[in-house]
Design a protein around this nucleic acid. Sequence first.
RNA 1: GCCCCGGUAGUGUAGUGGCCUAUCAUGUGAGCCUGUCGAGCUUUCGACUCGGGUUCAAAUCCCGGCCGGGGCGCCA
Length: 604
Amino acid sequence: MKRTNTCGELCSTDLGKDVCLQGWVRFSRDHGGILFFDLADAYGITQLVYDPEDVDEGVDKTSLASILDSFTRESVVSVTGTVRERVAGTEDARNPTGKVEVLIQDAELLSRSLSPPFEIGEQKEHLLPAEDTRLRYRYLDLRRAEMIRCLRFRHRVISLARQYMESASFLEVETPLLTRSTPEGARDFLVPSRVHPGSFYALPQSPQLFKQMLMVAGVDRYYQLARCFRDEDSRADRQPEFTQFDIEMSFVDREDIITIIEGMVSHIWRGLFDEELETPFLRLSFDEAMSLYGTDSPDLRFDMPMVDVTEIVRETPYDIFQRVLSKKGSSICGLNVKGSDGAEGLGRNEVDRLISWIKRHGMGGMTWMRVTDKGLDSNIVKYFTPEVQNGLIEAMGAEDGDLLLFLAGPRRKVLEAGGLLREKLAADLGLIKEGSHQFLWIIDCPMFEKDPVSGNLTAFHHPFVRPVGVLSDDVQGESYDLCLNGVELGSGSLRNHDVDVQRRILSMLGLSDERMEDDFGFFLEALSYGAPPHGGIALGVDRMVSIMLGKESIREVIAFPKNKRMHSPFDGSPTPVDDEKLSELQIMSLAMDDIDFDDIDIEE
RNA sequence: GCCCCGGUAGUGUAGUGGCCUAUCAUGUGAGCCUGUCGAGCUUUCGACUCGGGUUCAAAUCCCGGCCGGGGCGCCA
C-alpha cells in the first residue's frame, strides 16, 4: 500500500480515516502490552499505537506483534491503521499531530536500520555529537528536524530570490564550469584535459568574465546561482566550493544595482521573516568605515565608533603618547565604553585582560580612564590639563560612568586593532541584539592596494572595476560591497566597458602586453565589439542563509560541506587515482613517494 | 607555512600524578510494566587518539605525530 499521508499532517479532522503512513521509527515505548511509536519523516511526527484490545477482528495479533518487535530505531516502516483521538489528558500540545494517533492494524518493515551512532530525535544543541561525527553520518544528521529546517529555509531564500529576479525580467543563464585559468585572484582548482594533454581547465572562481561577455552579447539583465571554486584555506564562512547569487546589468548606474539588491533582499526578508527592511540601507565610504570602525565590513548592530583624538592630546606631556606621536603617520584613537561602572561593566581586572589581549594584536598597550562626576579618573590623568580632559570628554561624548580606552601607534594599525577591540567589547558585554540584521553598503573602495614590500599594485576587488574618474594608483573604484552584521555578503561594481581603460588597469597590475593577450585577449576582444556600460554584484548565498538562521558556520546550511581541511567526509574525496587514469591525462604525481625519476624519459 | 583550543564506552561527559579495577547520562542486549511521548523500573555490555619521554607511579606532566575545530597568512 502507498502512503496516504505524511507524518506531519494528520489532525482532528482526519478522525476515523483509514491511513497508511511510512517513515522512520524515531522512538518506541513498550508498556508491556500497549506499544507506542513515534513515526517521523521530513514533515513531522505522528504517534502510532498498537493496542491488542482495540485492533479489528480478524487481525493476526501474534504475527503483527512480531513484526512490530522488529521496528528498531530509525528503521523504515509502513503501517496502516485508523486515525483516532488520543485518550483524554494524553494529548501532546507541542506536536501539531499531537491530538491524534494511528491505531496500527497492519505493519511492514521496509528497511531495517542499524543502531544509529547518535541521537536523531530533537535535542538540545550541546548534546549533539562532534561535528565530524555529524558529517560522517550526514544522512542521519540531516534527518534531524533542525537540519531539515535549514535545508528548507535555504531553498526558500533561493526560491524568493529567483521569484524576484523573474519579476524584474532577469534572464537566468548558466556559464561554464570548465573555464580558463587566469593569473589574478585565488588559487584555481585545475581540471586536466585528456584531448589536450598538458593543458588544463580551471573551475571558475566566479563567472565574472562570462557575465560581462553576456552583457556585451546584449543579454542586458542576467542572474545565476553560480557555484564558485577557490583553492584557499577554509574558515567558518569559507568553503572551497560555494554558491553566489550572481547578477549583472547593462545601461545602469550604481543606484540601479543597489536598488535591485535592496529590493531582492527586502523581498526575501518579507517572505521569510514577515519583516519590512528599512531601505535604502545605510552607506559608508571605505574611508569612513576604516576611520570609524577599523574594518571594511563593520558590524553596525551596535554603535561605538572610534574617535581620533590625536590633535587633542598632541601637546600632552604623557610620555607614551609623545613617543608614539614623534613618529610620522601615528594616531591616537579612543573608544567610549558607555555605562561601564555598573555590575555589567568592566572592572580593573577586565581592563587588564583587554590590555594583554590587545598586545597580542600588535599594540604596545592601552591607555584607559574612567569618567566620573568629578571628571576623568585614572593613574595618568595628571598628565592631561583640564582643557585636554574637557576636549576628550567632548570629543568622545563621555558621561559619568563611561570607560574611555585609547590606542596609540601607526594609524592603520591603531584603526584595525581598535576595530577588533570594538567587536570584542560588543561580544563580551553582550551589546549585540540576537536576531537583529543590520545591512550596510561600503562604497568608494580604492581600486588598488600596494604591496608594502614589493610596492606592486594588486586589485582591491578585481581588475574589472571601473575607476571613479581618471585612472591613477590611488583612484577609487565604482564599487559597492554589501555587509550584513559585520560580514561581507557581497561585492559589486560598475565595470570597464572602455577597452583602453581596461588595458591600462591590467597593465598597472603588472601584466605585460603579451601576458594580457594570452590571459585576457578573448575578453578584451569582446570589450572591443561594442560593450555597453554595465555592472553587477554577487551575493554569498551560504553566508546570507547562515546569518539569517543565526548559525556559526556555513557548513550548517550546506547539505554536504567539506571539512576544515577540505576533505569530504561523505565520499572521502580527494583521493589518489589509478595510474591508468593519470597516464591517459599524461600526468604524473610528485606526491607519490615511489616515483623513480631515473625511469622517466624526458623528451627533448 | 604559523598561532590557539580540543581528542576518555556508539554518543555526550566527570576525572589537574597514587583515591581509576575510570564518573554520570544516553545508547545497546535481556527482563518487567496497558496511555506513554527523549516513557519508567531492574540488569548487561561498552572507553583513556597514537608513539616516545619524565616518574616508584601517567587518562592526568613533557615532546612529537595523527585527527577535529577557531584564527593569522591566503581568499583578484
